[in-house]
Simulated assay, not measured.
Amino acid sequence: MSNARHLGYRDELLADGQVHRRYEDGRSEWRRRGTDRQIHWHDSLGRTGIDEPLGRDLVKRRYADGTAEYGRDIGYGRTVWGGGLVTLNRSSFGGRLGVVVGALGVAGVAAITAAQLPPDALSEDEEEELRAQARQQSADSSSSSGGGGDGGGGEAAVGHDDPAAVDPAADDDFGDWNDSDDGWDGDDFG
């Protein structure tokens, strides 16, 4: 996957509990935690959708228009998406570690293997099995660490030029980004 494109972003926690994600290409995304470990988002292009963890390292991004794509968290704030896109969370690390992660972001493109690519599609049964694994991992993490956990998950995808007018995040049942009782860390999928 030597022709992969890298797109960095930084997250900022807002006073109202949302996370404002700023991509290096100028786009912005506002993210809120929802129920069932889902992240509801809308972006500066008018698109909306939901990100959902599937298993240990997959995330499903569903757009309001019904389309979906998958990403795979490959560590150090990097997520590989279909079509050759790698998103890189530049807000997670500072100091020397940030320099190392930044270098991984660029040099790590050549190291991405076919095994790290996300699936193009999953059946409902496959997705449900992965959801069950994610719930079990969360429960195991909560019981072994007293409620905390280091999460994982992937970054938000980019792409799909289809603007959507529906806001699935209209429900007010959102948690606090800083609570870690569900086993996910503060940046939830990135």
Rank of each mutant, 00 (worst) to 15 (best):
G146H: 09
I39M: 15
L104S: 02
V109P: 01
S91F: 01
G84K: 05
D36P: 08
I50H: 14
E52G: 00
G186F: 00
G34F: 10
V109E: 00
G147R: 09
G175R: 13
D181F: 14
G46C: 07
Q38P: 04
E29Y: 02
R22Q: 11
E129R: 11
Y70K: 05
G83C: 06
D187W: 01
D25V: 11
H6A: 11
L130C: 07
G8W: 15
Q18K: 01
G98A: 06
E24R: 01
V80L: 03
E52R: 14
L54M: 11
D65R: 00
G175H: 13
R47I: 14
L45V: 06
Y63R: 13
D188V: 14
E128I: 01
D125R: 10
L58Y: 07
V86M: 09
S92D: 03
L58M: 08
E12K: 02
Y63P: 01
D73W: 10
D16F: 15
R96V: 13
D150V: 02
L130D: 14
D188K: 15
R10E: 14
G183Q: 05
G183Y: 07
A68Y: 11
D36I: 01
T35Y: 02
S144E: 11
G183K: 00
G175P: 08
D51C: 04
A114F: 12
R56M: 08
H160C: 07
T79S: 15
G8H: 13
A169F: 03
H20K: 04
Q133D: 08
L54D: 07
M1I: 03
H160L: 05
Q133S: 11
D162A: 13
S2M: 11
R21F: 00
R78H: 13
R22G: 01
D171C: 12
H42P: 02
R78G: 00
R32F: 04
G183I: 03
F189T: 14
Y23F: 15
T48M: 02
R47L: 13
D140R: 08
E52S: 09
R90D: 05
D43H: 08
V80M: 05
D182L: 08
A114P: 10
G159P: 11
T35N: 10
K60C: 15
W177G: 03
V100T: 02
H40F: 15
A15D: 13
A134Y: 05
A156M: 07
M1A: 12
D185Q: 11
L85R: 07
S92E: 05
D25C: 09
G183F: 09
G8R: 15
Y63N: 10
Q18Y: 00
D181T: 13
D36S: 14
A165T: 14
R22L: 12
L85A: 06
S138R: 09
G146I: 06
N89I: 03
V100I: 08
G66V: 07
